[in-house]
Design a protein around this nucleic acid. Structure first.
Lengths: 228, 228
DNA sequence: CAGTCAAAAATTTGATCATATTCTGCTCGC
DNA sequence: GCGAGCAGAATATGATCAAATTTTTGACTG
């Protein structure tokens, strides 16, 4: 797979060609976030460079960013892996997520308009469809998209970025959960959230998100405890 | 300034030579954190490479990491600067810091022993000395050291890392505050914290840290409002 | 004739790569 | 088992190309 260096697309509209290091970053990030690279799996610079047809300098930069994001772990030697969650890490993630994401929901509820609720509902409908079809990758992507759309509405970019980064830490494990339990018993807290948003109920939105966070993390915890 | 490539120090003890990109990262990080590079100031890859006597690849990696940390800002073109805080950013930082750092204090209080309180007290004494001598860099470093030592004791590495990263965002502005107001009117909330810790009072520790956070952020806010 | 704006050259800086070097872990023979 | 050497992978450099900024220059107008 060769990355193109495009200054204009075929329609003649000048598309800002992203730097290669940015493309590699996005690519690798999404692979990790949606569990395509499993926890524990090693990531090599040369392997990635070869796979993406890029030089090693951009790959190197992408990997450093992802290490800083917590999406990759630099093991004292020169080895880089996708980190494996343990109970202690998960417990900390729950605390931080509850604090930040509930506040983001609260703030988003302050800025919603009807068109926004519609858009979220659309995503949620697609999400339900993915669940009933057992489409795990689709579920993971839409769930992420749902939350990020919500947080973008909060008009608190720094908080939203923090939340976003946290998803990189448990994303890989979420995939493992779905691989083990399927998509059937994924209760959906999003309906509560949508009605709270439609009513402009800040606290209701905060509670709904908190519930969603707890529930998701509990599923991961269940898998972790089995593995012990 | 040339970075040494040491496999052993002069005493013969094998010292693990850090990779150049790591050295550059540490160096630049501490410069930003303690305000040696002012907010708004541009950071160039080649400039840094020349200044540190390093190649551009390691410098590049260090800069990417710091961008991911929020310590540097990548401006759409290819320019990188130390970001300038605004009120909205500061408000978000206050919220996150209160949530995370108060919890870290709570957890640290659970794990303190007398020797730890002693060590913190030592740092605090040095901090007082720096304040009374008007030693701004010393104050900034010791204050950071005080908080990080506390958070390390909480046995919650992920939360501590999040907190650490946030300091990179307001550190540069703290320096500006001290440059404007000096070190004299820096009230010190650390005494409350120390006695709470010594008493094993989790909530007391949490409150003390929250107060410390609020007070520090208010000082920055005051400067921001002047600048408007 | 002077001032201003714009175009173009020059310089600075960023992006990428190919390559040399060093380090790590592993294997094979003793 | 244990140590030397080997394969592979990471680190780091400098060269090269491209993009952006700055400076220079020149023409046109008032």
């Amino acid at each position: 797979m060769k990355l193109v260096k495009n200054t204009a697309d075929q329609a003649g509209v000048p598309i800002r060609s992203l730097p290669v290091h940015e493309q590699v970053y996005q690519d690798l990030r999404s692979r990790i976030l949606f569990g395509e690279t499993a926890p524990g799996q090693a990531v090599t610079i040369q392997g990635l460079a070869d796979a993406l047809g890029a030089g090693m300098t951009p790959v190197r930069e992408a990997i450093r960013r992802l290490i800083s994001d917590g999406a990759l772990l630099f093991q004292g030697n020169r080895r880089v892996i996708v980190p494996t969650l343990d109970i202690a890490a998960l417990e900390q993630l729950v605390f931080i997520r509850k604090s930040i994401e509930s506040e983001l929901a609260r703030r988003a509820a302050r800025h919603v308009g009807p068109e926004f609720v519609d858009r979220l509902s659309e995503i949620d409908a697609a999400l339900d469809a993915a669940i009933s079809q057992g489409d795990v990758p689709g579920y993971l992507r839409l769930n992420y998209q749902f939350h990020m759309a919500l947080y973008a509405q909060a008009k608190a970019p720094i908080m939203a970025e923090q939340a976003d980064r946290l998803w990189l830490r448990f994303g890989p494990s979420l995939r493992v959960v779905c691989g083990r339990f399927g998509t059937q018993n994924l209760p959906d807290r999003h309906k509560d959230l949508l009605s709270a948003l439609a009513a402009g109920d800040e606290e209701g939105a905060a509670v709904a998100v908190t519930q969603d966070v707890i529930q998701g993390m509990e599923q991961i915890a269940a898998v972790l405890e089995i593995r012990e």
